[in-house]
């Protein structure tokens, strides 16, 4: 589907640079996304603190 750019050497033809840059963007985005861990016990605890504060029930030494 993607157009190719002819090289002057005998190397394999490469995709246009804008497509390769888009691939690089996706690669980085994927690596950042791979750091996702969802709602962990630590985050659960932070949400509980938030719930207490926002309900006016936070302990003085939370």
């Amino acid at each position: 589907m993607a157009a190719t750019v002819k090289q002057e050497t005998n190397e394999e033809p490469r995709e246009p640079v804008h497509l390769r840059k888009a691939q690089a963007q996706r690669e980085i985005a994927h690596r950042i996304d791979a750091l996702s861990v969802g709602i962990t016990p630590k985050r659960e605890k932070m949400l509980q603190v938030y719930a207490k504060v926002m309900s006016g029930k936070a302990d003085p030494a939370e």
Binding site: M46, V49, Y50, V53, M54, A58, P60, E62
Partner: peptide, 11 residues
């Protein structure tokens, strides 16, 4: 300090 304001701000 110690009143849960840090997590509240973060959320």
């Amino acid at each position: 300090k110690g009143r849960g304001m840090g997590p509240t701000l973060m959320i």
